[in-house]
């Protein structure tokens, strides 16, 4: 359906914006390495089913490889910055201070409690879906500490947030058309979108009106 396609396109767009930002500007100011590492973990645990060869579709499989590949590549590009632009790297590390153990621990616990089956694959899937819902927190924390961000960084966060928000009408659509109700995805999707809501509001008020992102 249209919402799901738009959501996936928005997710793709967010990654392209991020890669272009890092490659062109050769700096990583305002981008959280911790959030990017969490995404590597999210995609690697979510798409373990690639190893079972029970593929849904070519589209699905290609997208999975793309998300794993690009998330690893982003982390590598950011690590490279240690040598190519040490000032920018140091500045990023100085601001990227969110303690991710407070996300990893609870997500692992939630995965043990809420899952569809008590198998390695399903537990990893559930862990990834919980972790994805909060993976943006180090990035948002960094943003709130510095109080402002480059326009490209805010476009990246917006596209990334929009992707999960668009999955919500997709789930409503699928409930009516296929009688499909995936409670875990829906709950974590709502949680994820809620975490972005404050950002969305400021993005709408400032960036979309061409005023640049600055926190009140």
């Amino acid at each position: 359906n249209i919402f799901r396609i738009l959501a996936d396109l928005s997710h793709l767009a967010s990654i392209v914006i991020l890669l272009e930002t890092i490659r062109k500007a050769r700096q990583i100011d305002g981008i959280s390495l911790k959030t990017q590492i969490l995404y590597v973990l999210v995609f690697c645990t979510r798409y373990l089913d690639l190893l079972t060869f029970r593929w849904t579709s070519l589209y699905n499989t290609l997208m999975k490889f793309f998300f794993i590949g690009t998330s690893v590549y982003v982390v590598k590009l950011m690590q490279d910055c240690k040598l190519t632009n040490p000032v920018s790297y140091k500045d990023m590390m100085f601001r990227d201070t969110f303690q991710i153990k407070y996300l990893l621990g609870p997500c692992a616990l939630l995965a043990l409690v809420f899952n569809y089956k008590f198998t390695v694959l399903e537990l990893c899937w559930s862990f990834s879906i919980w972790l994805e819902s909060v993976a943006i927190l180090p990035q948002l924390f960094m943003l709130s500490r510095s109080g402002k961000a480059s326009t490209l960084t805010t476009h990246y966060i917006f596209a990334l947030g929009l992707y999960r928000a668009l999955y919500i009408p997709n789930w409503i659509w699928r409930y009516y058309s296929e009688n499909r109700l995936e409670k875990l995805s829906i709950f974590t999707g709502l949680l994820q979108t809620a975490l972005y809501s404050d950002f969305f509001y400021i993005y709408y008020r400032k960036v979309m009106k061409g005023r640049g992102f600055e926190l009140p």
Partner: peptide, 10 residues
Amino acid sequence: NENKGTHDEL
């Protein structure tokens, strides 16, 4: 629900 555990979304 029959759809449980069939992860066809990204």
